[in-house]
């Protein structure tokens, strides 16, 4: 398998073309949007956080390069049901392991947009929203 086929391996392209948990949660606990103007990659994340601070539901919405969007899709599967404390501990290495592909420093930024967006959503939850559960429609 040569380099490029490993970067754009089937699983990545599948997540890019058919992103999992794509859409919106109208009454999400927290909703956060990140944008990388340099690339034009965009990602919105909706988290429904239950009383035990577990992610009861997650949805994403975005557009951008295959790496950024596939990474976000894969991450939704990973965080569903997880406690926010576990998500807070996730690092670059976890994303690289999840993607399972070699990435140049430039493309690493694309891959990490998802984790940044999820983590910042949790920061916003802890700092401003505080109370878990469903919120008003947004």
């Amino acid at each position: 398998m040569d380099g490029i086929d490993s970067i754009y391996r089937e699983q990545i392209l599948d997540h890019y073309k058919n992103p999992r948990n794509f859409g919106k949660i109208m009454n999400a606990t927290v909703h956060h949007h990140e944008y990388n103007p340099l690339c034009g990659d965009e990602l919105e994340v909706y988290l429904l956080i239950d009383d035990d601070k577990n992610v009861a539901d997650v949805k994403i919405h975005g557009k951008g390069c295959a790496i950024s969007q596939a990474s976000a899709s894969m991450l939704t599967e990973k965080v569903k049901g997880k406690n926010i404390e576990e998500i807070k501990k996730m690092a670059k290495e976890d994303i690289l392991e999840m993607l399972g592909i070699p990435l140049s420093p430039v493309r690493l930024k694309c891959a990490l947009l998802s984790l940044d967006t999820f983590k910042n959503a949790i920061v916003i939850f802890e700092k401003y929203i505080k109370e878990p559960g469903v919120k008003g429609e947004r």
Partner: peptide, 11 residues
């Protein structure tokens, strides 16, 4: 995305 195009061309 143009970045995906460019990366595949680079290969």
């Amino acid at each position: 995305h143009a970045h995906d195009v460019s990366q595949i061309l680079d290969s």
